[in-house]
Computed example of a mutant assay.
Amino acid sequence: MSVWLFLQNTILPSYSYMMLELLGIGYDRVSIITVVQTVVSMCSLYVWGTLNARYSNKYLLLRDGRHLHPLPEQKNAST
């Protein structure tokens, strides 16, 4: 996880430069995109930490999200 965060923070300035210079996106939009990316990253780390405290790593990595919180059983319409 720390390697991913390091790479993400290393590449982000180059990505911002690309958006500003090559794509012609304004500073305001680049700022909004960066803020949204940071907030989503913080929220996802919080959720991952909560799930990691509740379940084992093996369980989380081998299952998809639908198995973490099963939906309640639906009653059959014919009965």
Rank of each mutant, 00 (worst) to 15 (best):
Q37C: 05
E73D: 03
L68I: 09
Y17G: 09
Y17E: 07
E73T: 05
V36G: 04
F6N: 15
P72D: 01
Y46H: 11
A77C: 15
V40I: 14
Y46G: 13
R54C: 01
I25N: 03
R66F: 08
Q37I: 03
L23I: 01
S44E: 11
A53R: 13
R66G: 03
W4V: 09
D64A: 05
V30E: 01
T50E: 09
L23K: 13
L12H: 07
L12D: 05
I32H: 01
M19A: 07
R66M: 04
K58D: 08
S31P: 01
L62Y: 08
M42D: 05
S14P: 06
Y17W: 09
T50I: 02
C43T: 03
L12P: 01
L20H: 05
V47W: 10
G24C: 11
C43W: 02
N52I: 00
L60Q: 11
L68A: 00
L62P: 04
K58G: 07
S2V: 04
V40C: 15
W4N: 09
M42A: 10
V3C: 00
S41A: 14
K58Y: 12
L60H: 08
A77V: 15
L60E: 01
S78C: 12
S44Q: 08
G26F: 00
S2E: 06
M42V: 06
N52H: 07
M18P: 01
I33S: 09
E73S: 06
H69F: 14
S56L: 01
V47S: 02
L68D: 00
D28R: 13
P13M: 05
K58C: 08
A77F: 14
M1Q: 15
R29C: 07
Y15R: 14
T38D: 11
S41F: 12
V3D: 06
S2G: 07
L23M: 08
L20Y: 04
K75F: 10
L51P: 10
D28G: 10
V35P: 00
Y15G: 11
G65D: 05
Y46K: 15
L60N: 06
R66S: 11
W48H: 08
T38H: 05
L45A: 04
S56M: 06
G24W: 01
L71R: 13
G65S: 12
S16W: 02
S14I: 12
M19Y: 04
N57I: 05
M42G: 10
L23A: 10
S16Q: 15
P70K: 05
S41H: 15
M19C: 11
L20P: 07
G24L: 04
D64E: 07
L23T: 05
L51E: 04
T34F: 03
I32W: 00
N52W: 03
Y46C: 13
I32Y: 02
M18H: 11
Y15E: 11
M18E: 05
V47Y: 08
V36Q: 02
H69A: 13
M1Y: 13
N76I: 13
R63S: 13
L68H: 03
I25Y: 01
P72M: 00
I32G: 01
Y27F: 10
L68Y: 00
T79M: 15
T10M: 08
V40R: 15
T38V: 03
G24N: 09
V47M: 14
R29P: 00
V30P: 02
M42C: 12
L22P: 08
G49Q: 12
